[in-house]
Design a protein around this nucleic acid. Structure first.
Lengths: 239, 239
DNA sequence: CATTTCAACTTGTATTTACAAGTAAAGTTA
DNA sequence: TAACTTTACTTGTAAATACAAGTTGAAATG
């Protein structure tokens, strides 16, 4: 116990503590969080630092703040929060999520043209390619094609991704943290491989996301094309 | 000129200035913004204030920051940024956007059940209902059904919405600022009214968004069901 | 010339202090 | 009791300061 992440800045530590308390129901929807001054005392930090933590919680949709009153805990979304900074695993919860590897990871050349503009360094270093299907309650929901630049990722192709989170592997094995990204989004109708992998009929509606995912390494981004069966589970996001 | 918004906090003013400079191309993609200390001097403020402005620019995807280096201007997205805090008008640009009113605004009762949980106050006060189609280059792209609680919105139903922005009217006439919201998202196939209003064939893929939009009035939110024809224009967002 | 070291500059984190402005409840007054 | 005022507490904004840590280019060194 108490073996927390000691290298994280304190505002991040406080954020993690409060986030866990909300997720675990210590604070429930509609509850007030302790005031900023209280949080200063209990954590031994000052208001600007507390406010950094709270700002992050607001941004992630866990609380809303009201001037003169305090921080109010929000309802936790029921849908799948894939539109925010979170991998599929953390968006759904590990319990019901399984991952089936279809292809890779293998090293190959980048598609040309690619869905996002690539730097010269990215082009030269080649591409680590994966195809995965994510299943929720044993029903395929996401068909995910991932492209990573082959930069500073030793032994990546020999790692096991079966039922493991890509984001976790990047963070734990390579100290790569996802910080954000951009995505484009459209509705399409299923055909071919998509029908097969998502177990839907030809002509069924499917959500198509193309994402560029940025990390704490300033010139390391990776890319993902995602097909989602949203018939039963809508995607959820805050803005 | 210079008759700017004087009541806005200074970090917001600086944000607006920098945002406009980026949008207007004074700073272009890849350019460095002046350093935080420079911005302090030129604006007569201190670093924490400058950093608030820059944080907002990061959040909105205009810049990215690199420790030890500076603030780098990002490419401005080509798609339609409806997934962020912006009305359709500002997401597309006024030039090519037209609005056709199909219904309303009229006062009626809330649907029961409604797509989001409603407070008692909202239920009692009734609902202002509108249906609009937004056209880009004279092609219908959004079929937007809007629900507003009938609270403190005098003469709302007699206002002209033809080719005007709902967000603008709320801000200018009622001092209501949109601060964020939540949305759920799924792909569907078009049928019935949707085909008609979006000018698509039955069975064509359509994006369906359901949004709760929060404002600076703590218990005033409004709601929108949006059907988007994404065949030609994908939606774009950052996270 | 090539390499290393260093100094100057950048953003990141954190403290301390101060006041403005909104909320809510206790207390006061009619 | 009902309405108003005060008071305490809350978040919002802002300044001044300090040091850590990453980046870059100039200066010193081999």
């Amino acid at each position: 116990m108490s073996g927390k992440k000691q290298n994280l800045p304190r505002y991040r530590q406080v954020y993690e503590i409060l986030r866990k308390h909300i997720v675990n129901g210590v604070y429930q929807e509609g509850d007030m969080l302790p005031s900023e001054n209280d949080l200063c005392q209990t954590n031994g930090i000052t208001r600007p630092t507390v406010r950094l933590a709270l700002d992050q919680l607001v941004k992630d949709g866990f609380i809303k703040k009201q001037k003169g009153k305090g921080s109010i805990v929000c309802a936790q979304p029921k849908g799948i929060g894939i539109l925010s900074v979170a991998g599929t695993t953390s968006a759904i919860g590990k319990e019901n999520l399984k991952t089936k590897i279809l292809v890779g990871p293998v090293i190959r050349k980048w598609d040309d043209p690619f869905m996002f503009p690539l730097s010269d360094v990215e082009k030269e270093s080649g591409c680590i390619y994966m195809e995965r299907v994510r299943l929720v309650n044993n029903k395929p929901l996401f068909y995910d094609i991932t492209f990573l630049p082959n930069i500073n990722l030793p032994r990546f192709t020999s790692r096991k991704f079966e039922n493991r989170s890509l984001f976790d592997i990047l963070r734990r094995s390579y100290q790569v943290e996802v910080t954000g990204g951009e995505q484009s989004l459209k509705a399409i109708t299923a055909k071919g491989k998509i029908c097969q992998h998502l177990d839907v009929q030809e002509g069924d509606p499917v959500l198509h996301l193309e994402r560029k995912i940025n990390t704490n390494r300033i010139d390391f981004s990776f890319y993902s094309t995602l097909f989602c069966n949203t018939i039963e589970h809508a995607l959820f996001g805050i803005f």
